[in-house]
């Protein structure tokens, strides 16, 4: 494992912790898209089917459990917690996320590295993760005024994707046995590009020390 991969995983972990912290301490999920959170829970569930059948490392297993556990806890908070669920911007979070799931599944059935159940589900999770942030970005655009924790959450997620790309470039040159993974690379690149616009406004707001405000 290289430093970029580790830094990517840590920013990913921090993004989830920031979100849980916001929900747990402020008892609010304002500005957070439930649609995106549902997609992430589905992404992790589909990707980590090998958690009990294939052992890579303790690090891998623990991180998978954390991502699964945290994503389903966030869903629980937003749907079931009697205080938190009242702060959910239901009327603004209208992205029809179900329409992302089917095309990703069809694409995974058509374009994959190996036509087995686990491999197709894994590929599906890669495609779905690439677009899962869309409902969240649409919600941010609608709310326009973004609170600090929500802004940090999306920033950390984007940073995680950026670091993973550097990790792939590093692995490609540093590991002789590392082969080309077009599916992961293209999906990962697309996913990172989706954050570009947000990054621009986020960095400007940090630089000028003002609240993040997205254009209408």
């Amino acid at each position: 494992m290289n430093i970029f991969r580790l830094a990517g995983d840590m920013t990913h972990l921090m993004s989830v912790l920031v979100l849980l912290l916001k929900i747990h301490t402020i008892k609010s999920c304002a500005g957070i898209s439930l649609k995106t959170q549902e997609l992430y829970a589905l992404v992790f569930a589909a990707r980590y089917l090998d958690i009990f059948t294939h052992y890579y490392s303790l690090y891998n297993t623990v991180m998978k459990l954390i991502f699964l556990g945290s994503s389903f806890s966030i869903l629980w908070y937003m749907k079931r917690h009697k205080v938190v669920r009242r702060s959910y911007d239901k009327d603004q979070d209208t992205f029809r996320h179900h329409f992302l799931v089917l095309p990703c599944l069809v694409l995974a059935l058509l374009i994959n590295e190996k036509f087995t159940f686990k491999e197709v589900m894994w590929t599906f999770s890669i495609y779905l993760e690439a677009v899962a942030i869309l409902p969240q970005l649409v919600l941010l655009q609608r709310t326009r005024n973004v609170d600090n924790l929500t802004g940090q959450y999306v920033f950390l997620l984007g940073a995680y994707r950026g670091l993973y790309i550097i990790n792939w470039i590093y692995r490609y040159f540093a590991e002789p046995t590392y082969s080309t993974h077009w599916i992961t690379w293209i999906s990962g690149l697309l996913q990172t590009l989706l954050y570009a616009d947000f990054f621009y406004y986020y960095i400007n707001s940090v630089k000028n020390n003002v609240r993040l405000q997205l254009p209408a």
Binding site: R47, W122, T184
Partner: peptide
């Protein structure tokens, strides 16, 4: 699973 290193990322 002939390529155990295939999905070693999260």
């Amino acid at each position: 699973d002939s390529q155990p290193e295939l999905h070693d990322e999260l």
